Amino acid sequence: MGIQCSIQWFNAIDKIGIDAYYHLQTSNDNATVDEIVIAWQQFVPLLDNLAKQWNKPIIFVEIGYTSAYNTHAHPDHMELLAYDDCSVWALCVFLEEQANSYEAAYITFWNLEWFDGMFWWLWRTDPWDGHSSDSGFSPVGKPAENVMTKWYSQKTNKSF
Rank of each mutant, 00 (worst) to 15 (best):
residue 109 F to Y: 12
residue 23 H to C: 13
residue 130 G to Q: 05
residue 75 P to L: 02
residue 47 L to R: 02
residue 11 N to L: 09
residue 150 K to H: 00
residue 105 A to N: 02
residue 127 P to S: 10
residue 33 V to T: 10
residue 42 Q to P: 03
residue 9 W to A: 14
residue 27 S to A: 15
residue 33 V to L: 08
residue 1 M to S: 11
residue 6 S to G: 14
residue 102 Y to T: 00
residue 91 L to P: 10
residue 143 P to T: 07
residue 10 F to S: 09
residue 82 A to E: 11
residue 2 G to R: 11
residue 130 G to H: 05
residue 3 I to V: 10
residue 160 F to I: 06
residue 20 A to I: 04
residue 152 Y to G: 08
residue 72 H to E: 04
residue 113 E to A: 14
residue 34 D to C: 11
residue 45 P to M: 06
residue 124 R to G: 11
residue 58 I to D: 03
residue 1 M to R: 13
residue 89 W to G: 09
residue 92 C to W: 05
residue 36 I to Y: 07
residue 38 I to Q: 15
residue 28 N to W: 14
residue 65 Y to R: 01
residue 135 S to H: 12
residue 70 N to M: 06
residue 104 A to D: 00
residue 6 S to P: 13
residue 158 K to Y: 03
residue 156 T to P: 00
residue 52 K to P: 06
residue 101 S to Q: 01
residue 59 I to N: 06
residue 62 E to N: 02
residue 60 F to V: 02
residue 5 C to K: 04
residue 33 V to I: 14
residue 128 W to C: 10
residue 40 W to K: 05
residue 7 I to L: 15
residue 79 E to D: 10
residue 89 W to Q: 12
residue 146 N to G: 07
residue 117 G to E: 03
residue 73 A to P: 06
residue 125 T to Y: 14
residue 49 N to V: 11
residue 53 Q to V: 10
residue 26 T to Y: 07
residue 107 I to M: 04
residue 91 L to M: 15
residue 152 Y to I: 13
residue 156 T to R: 00
residue 146 N to I: 09
residue 153 S to M: 00
residue 2 G to A: 13
residue 130 G to R: 05
residue 21 Y to R: 00
residue 147 V to D: 00
residue 159 S to E: 11
residue 40 W to L: 09
residue 159 S to I: 13
residue 119 F to R: 05
residue 62 E to Q: 01
residue 133 S to M: 10
residue 106 Y to H: 01
residue 134 D to W: 14
residue 144 A to S: 01
residue 40 W to V: 04
residue 148 M to Y: 00
residue 92 C to D: 06
residue 127 P to Q: 12
residue 97 E to I: 09
residue 18 I to D: 05
residue 7 I to Y: 14
residue 29 D to F: 11
residue 57 P to M: 03
residue 76 D to C: 10
residue 146 N to W: 04
residue 140 V to K: 15
residue 5 C to F: 12
residue 15 K to N: 14
residue 92 C to R: 05
residue 16 I to W: 05
residue 46 L to A: 02
residue 107 I to G: 01
residue 10 F to W: 10
residue 63 I to A: 01
residue 108 T to W: 02
residue 101 S to Y: 07
residue 55 N to Q: 14
residue 46 L to E: 03
residue 75 P to H: 02
residue 124 R to K: 13
residue 47 L to E: 03
residue 15 K to S: 12
